[in-house]
Write a protein that binds this DNA or RNA. Structure first.
Lengths: 229, 229
DNA sequence: CCGAATCCGGCATGATACTG
DNA sequence: CAGTATCATGCCGGATTCGG
């Protein structure tokens, strides 16, 4: 293995598998749900098909990704994470939170996908917020994702949810500031930055349950008691 | 930014900075303490100096690493993490634990460094174990690191500690099995796989306070109550 | 259409040598 | 000690082509 770092170190072994270009984003999308080759290609603009093929093969060989025959309605293949790959979730979420620390507003060329939105919601979930069971449908610009909270447990997905949502949130890039706690739910509605369909209280619960801090707010967020240990 | 993935996603932004070759290992070493160019080069066998230079420059530009004049006794420069870089620690630890899941025994060419050993101890620390304040000096083959626990807080470092340790542990690759919970402290001593200098109880406390599970033991470790949420 | 394989230019990496 | 210079190799990005 010429790509191995030659160190008996978990981080070194992880870096060998995850350090290749596009690998983390492929895993991000698969961590939200199973995907076909085209789904991945569409959700990762810029990845050459050759690289996507190579990466999927490597991840399969590493035991992170599994290639399966698609369910009856479709034909072809679907890719999904193995149980070993699903163990990556805490690390993915931690990395995502770190990367979001300096991500206040999108660059002009930045896109948002359903999978990345779902991953952000998962990374920001506060199990301690103890919200009532609810299903949220979130539109951030062109991207759509859903989250279902129930008894401290969270389920997320890209696209619209199967069940009818309790609350629909329609926002633009301002959603980032809401998740960072920079913008209160009431203020967001008052200024027209976010539109909702559903009870106001559900929106308050959403804002409390999903928090992705910005670097400058780290200390204050912790002292307020919303911080992650 | 041709290297950016063009997505408004924390994971994508993190991958851009951390996905370059050697970046995670450089940050790992710096997360243990400040390092000079030569320290990093010695601790990362195989990295070309040109790549190390380039990576340090990029990480500095990204605000992760800081380049400073060395403290008076020496001259030259030292590299260290910025506060922003130190925010990576939870993600580093999570990645390290994941990478260690399938790392039962070292490959023939795998080396262990003081920094990687210190990082492993940090990743495996169980704040809940509530051990008494203690300083441990750990030798794993040629590598040396120390850990100090005090009231749930942990400090680690590479090489020998400044203060006299309460317990000295001398082990080979078998230390991995001890950290995984596959080998009990008593058994390790009885079979001569680990040698200690210090009270037996301190060794028991060490084994309880530092746990880095293997994949096959994940479920049992959780049911036993030693798991990470 | 889906899931790739192929070809090609360019850049990053790895190895080695060299310098202030 | 702390890098810079040079060069062969190989991976990545982009486009096209191909089989089912």
């Amino acid at each position: 293995m010429s790509k191995d770092y030659g160190q008996f170190c978990g981080l070194a072994k992880a870096a060998r598998v995850l350090g290749e270009r596009w690998a983390l984003l492929i895993i991000r999308d698969l961590s939200i749900g199973s995907r076909r080759f085209k789904d991945l290609h569409d959700g990762l603009p810029g990845v050459p098909t050759s690289v996507l093929t190579a990466r999927l093969r490597e991840l399969e060989e590493a035991g992170v990704v599994e290639r399966r025959a698609a369910a009856p309605p479709h034909r072809g293949v679907v890719y999904e994470l193995t149980p070993y790959g699903r163990e990556l979730q805490p690390a993915l979420d931690a990395l995502g939170r770190w990367g979001a620390l300096r991500m206040a507003a999108p660059e002009p060329e930045d896109i948002i996908t359903g999978s990345s939105l779902a991953a952000a919601l998962r990374a920001g979930y506060q199990p301690g917020a103890a919200a009532p069971a609810a299903t949220y449908l979130v539109h951030a610009g062109p991207a759509t994702a859903w989250a279902h909270t129930e008894g401290g447990e969270l389920t997320v997905g890209a696209g619209p949810p199967e069940a009818d949502p309790d609350l629909v949130i329609r926002a633009g890039p301002q959603l980032r500031l809401l998740l960072a706690g920079r913008l209160s739910p009431a203020e967001a509605l008052r200024r027209g930055m976010v539109e909702i369909e559903g009870p106001h209280a559900a929106f308050e619960a959403f804002a409390a349950a999903f928090q992705v801090p910005l670097e400058a707010d780290l200390h204050s967020a912790e002292t307020i008691g919303e911080g992650r240990s």
